[in-house]
Design a protein around this nucleic acid. Structure first.
Length: 798
RNA sequence: GCCGCGGUGGUGAAAUGGUAGACACGCGAGACUUAAAAUCUCGUGAUAGCAAUAUCAUGCGGGUUCGAGUCCCGCCUGCGGCACCA
């Protein structure tokens, strides 16, 4: 068999062309589905470096599902599109002057070519790209919907500012407090920004997770990100004033141990506490506020170990002890969480303790327990002494209903969506001469991204350099009117693309109600674990918002979701150009073929695991495909052999069970076993049975399967029917029944299934004990118990 | 620190509480070949033994069970996420 007929190059280019000409699997959204299955892959950014092996993994996995389910009679919708706005194209433009639309267009063309080459059965007719005005028209429309409901609003917020590049950076561009590109320290700058009020849905974003089939760790991570915590708000009365300081605490049981209060610098300014402050403390506080506002991310982290602060000279009264305690300003208190004011309990909070030690503040223990932060029994707490923490946490708020309120706090903040960047969807807002924002009129959508801009960063939004943009606004809205110069975060684009797919060419709506009803929600989403908190949370928020506006009839967009793992370099490390361990899928396709690439990646291990690339194992998979090809194309022994036929039935069962469960590695192993048996017997399958096997292979290796199928068929294998196992052909001429003594394997009974089922438990015991290997170990021993699991195992207990 | 996920041969990995290591790679020996590649055959967890076989073995220590890689408790360790969140 050394002169194999298998020429992957020839086969794969041939079928790629045929499928494309036949328009296979296209325009599926136009069907009115009886039995729909919407498969979605994570929206990809069309990077200049093209498809990498990680893309191949997730796309192949979904493609196998798509092909498998089509063969099982499902109406499969499997669309493709591009998250095409974003920074790399813009940075490239800054460097080279090439407009981002040119770079992006080229990159998309490369991806399309590569995806077709590896045989992904996308519905190309519904392809979308977020940078296309027919798409971002509706991104802008959603913005305006949010704006009209008060869920898109402007506020002054801190942004990451790179002083060297003179530009705002996205969070993802800040690595360890430094600019990803020039490595200079990023500072926080206050700028007026647009936000989406995702916090409006924070509780539903938690509870909705009960209704979806997602990996549990993923749900946990989202829940942690939202960060709901139960606690109590307490108003502490400020001495010599009629004002209060409100704090949030999860440990109201420790309130008797409050020996000071700490307020964040921002909140001290916001509350104008300087008005009631003793003159003597004013100067120091003012200096502290100025100093902390200049701190960088890095400096703030240093403060984690070495806390700073200043005494305001103000006092509040501890409601339980009646004692007056001092109020300090310190920037270890976060302005954005809770009320921005914290009650200091140095005996039971490590941060408060560090602060108290540094500034010599009183430390009073109020909980008796092994660990200072654990729950325990109250001491030094007046009338609450002796209660457990748990009891106190109920009793204390109940006793002080005038100043305490049981409440919740969340870590989740509103979503800052404005970017001082060029390559994104313009925010559809115009300002009147007084500076008030107004929505761009519906008839002016899409609100086009101007092209006459200077990409070089100047510290201002690049759109400011467009003359056309300014003129457009004045012409449409009047003299003195100005556009919003910021663009939207690309996560906005990707938060609703799965809705657009089902009606990608609709000019009147983001998607028609009929099409949405036909296909949504998404049945299965395959996406990397890196998207757990941002994209997946934002998409769920958009879905819930659009539902509340009456556009959608469901609450969760992605019913079932699984993650693909990362493909690591041969050295076991993450692939990167600088490490020189990148595997280029084009090379593998060239050398071994797309089928080999696909099957190898699926055979590497469980889909969700991170797996290192192994060049030599690729050869093994290629060998496997070639052996099949030789068996099918050249082996003409078509006399059915019961052993081989039986193995085929078992293989059909295994592949049918494993494929929809995404257990592709074990399904492939089963097919390999089948080929081993088949080869050992030098044939043994009829033509029809060979075809059944080829069908099992078809979703995994679509090109070679099609070629083998066409040896006798005219139509495509990918629209044929999935094979069914015939159990009556499964042969079991001998069962090997393992016999254990005290749970250790000591022998086995070889017996036919018919004979075995006729035997009683006692008879089996007798036969087992008669085995020489068993007998010699039973010498003079008493059998205490005999366990028999029918057909599985027998165990003698001595 | 908090939340989560892992740890099985030389390697990637299998294994509804029921024969641990399927399948594949690699390696060793052999066949074919002038030779190499490719291909094929046999072997391959460790230790001892010519062998049959025996003992040990799923990060470590306990436990439940007739029986544990799998369930429970306590550690060690690697990885991911969050992190001065009060």
């Amino acid at each position: 068999m050394s002169n194999t007929l298998y020429n992957h190059q020839e086969i794969e280019t041939k079928w790629q062309e045929v499928w494309e000409n036949d328009h296979l699997f296209q325009d599926s959204a136009k069907i009115n589905p009886a039995n729909k299955l919407y498969l979605l892959f994570a929206f990809a950014y069309p990077s200049g470096s093209g498809l990498h092996v990680g893309h191949v993994e997730s796309k192949t996995a979904l493609d196998i599902l798509a092909r498998y389910h089509r063969m099982n009679g499902k109406d499969v919708f499997f669309p493709v599109g591009w998250d095409a706005f974003g920074l790399p194209a813009e940075n490239y433009a800054i460097k080279t002057g090439t407009p981002p639309e040119v770079t992006t267009k080229n990159a998309i063309a490369t991806f399309e070519r590569q995806l077709k080459r590896i045989g992904i059965s996308y519905d190309w007719d519904n392809e979308i790209a977020t940078c296309d005005p027919t798409y971002y028209k509706w991104t802008q429309w959603i913005f305006l919907e949010l704006f009209s409901k008060g869920l898109a609003y402007q506020a002054t917020g801190k942004v990451n500012w790179c002083p060297s590049c003179q530009t705002v950076l996205a969070n993802e561009q800040v690595v360890n407090g430094r600019c990803e590109r020039c490595d200079s320290e990023v500072i926080q700058k206050d700028m007026k920004q647009w936000f989406f009020k995702i916090t409006e849905y924070r509780d539903e974003l938690i509870s909705g997770l009960d209704d979806v089939d997602w990996p549990n760790p993923t749900k946990q991570q989202q829940i942690n990100w939202i960060g709901k915590s139960e606690g109590v708000e307490v108003d502490f009365a400020l001495k010599n004033s009629n004002r209060q300081l409100k704090v949030f605490t999860t440990r109201v049981d420790t309130i008797a141990g409050v020996t000071f209060m700490v307020i964040s610098p921002e909140k001290f300014a916001e509350f104008k506490l300087v008005e009631i402050q003793p003159e003597a403390n004013k100067k120091a506080c003012e200096d502290y506020l100025t100093a902390s506002s200049k701190k960088t991310e890095e400096e703030r982290k240093i403060g984690e170990k070495n806390k700073t602060g200043v005494d305001t000279g103000l006092f509040v009264t501890n409601p339980v002890t009646g004692k007056d305690v001092p109020v300090w300003i310190a920037d270890y208190v976060l302005a954005g969480y809770g009320t921005g004011v914290v009650m200091g309990v140095p005996a039971h909070d490590p941060r408060d303790k560090a602060f108290a030690k540094k500034f010599d503040l009183e430390i009073i223990p109020v909980i008796e327990s092994e660990d200072e932060v654990a729950y325990g029994t109250l001491i030094n707490s007046g009338k609450y002494t002796g209660l457990s923490s748990k009891e106190a946490m109920e009793k204390i708020p109940a006793d002080f209903t005038d100043i305490m309120k049981v409440t919740q706090n969340y870590r989740l903040r509103d979503w800052l969506i404005s970017r001082q960047r060029y390559w994104g969807a313009p925010i559809p807002i115009v300002y009147d001469p007084e500076g008030q924002p107004h929505p761009v009129k519906q008839e002016h959508l899409p609100w086009l991204l101007p092209t006459d801009v200077d990409f070089k960063p100047t510290g201002e939004s690049p759109l400011r350099s467009s003359v056309e943009f300014k003129e457009r606004v004045e012409k449409l809205y009047g003299k003195g009117w100005t556009p919003e110069y910021d663009t939207m975060d690309t996560f906005v684009d990707s938060s609703w693309y799965f809705l657009r797919y089902v009606d990608s060419k609709n000019e009147l709506q983001f998607a028609s109600p009929e099409q949405l009803k036909n296909w949504l929600p998404v049945d299965f989403y395959m996406i990397g674990p890196e998207h757990i908190v941002l994209h997946l949370l934002y998409s769920r928020f958009f879905t819930k918002f659009l539902r509340d506006q009456g556009y959608l009839k469901f609450s969760e967009p992605f019913m079932k979701m699984r993650h693909q793992g990362m493909i690591l370099g041969p050295d076991g490390r993450k692939m990167s150009k600088s490490k020189g361990n990148v595997i280029n899928p084009d090379d593998v396709v060239e050398k071994f073929g797309a089928d080999t690439l696909r099957v190898y990646e699926m055979f590497m291990g469980p889909i969700e695991a991170d797996k290192p690339w192994d060049e030599r194992s690729v050869v093994g998979v290629h060998r496997f495909l070639r052996r099949i090809f030789d068996l099918v194309m050249t082996e003409d022994n078509e006399v059915e052999m019961p052993r081989v036929v039986s193995k085929l039935q078992k293989t059909i069962q295994k592949v049918t069970a494993d494929t929809p469960e995404l257990k592709f590695n074990t399904a492939i192993a089963a097919m390999m076993e089948m080929v081993n048996v088949w080869e050992e017997h030098g044939g043994g399958l009829s033509k029809a049975q060979k075809e059944q096997f080829v069908k099992l292979l078809a979703p995994y290796a679509p090109f070679i399967a099609e070629e083998m199928w066409h040896k006798v068929n005219k139509n495509t294998i990918h629209q044929s029917e999935w094979p069914k196992a015939d159990e009556s052909l499964i042969q079991q001429d001998e069962i090997i029944l393992p016999i254990q003594i005290n749970g250790k394997l000591r022998g086995d009974l070889r017996i036919s299934p018919a004979e075995l089922s006729a035997l009683s438990k006692e008879q089996i015991q007798t036969m087992a004990m008669a085995l020489p290997s068993i007998q010699k170990r039973l010498e003079g021993q008493e059998i205490k118990k005999f366990i028999y699991i029918p057909g599985k195992i027998a165990n003698l207990v001595i």
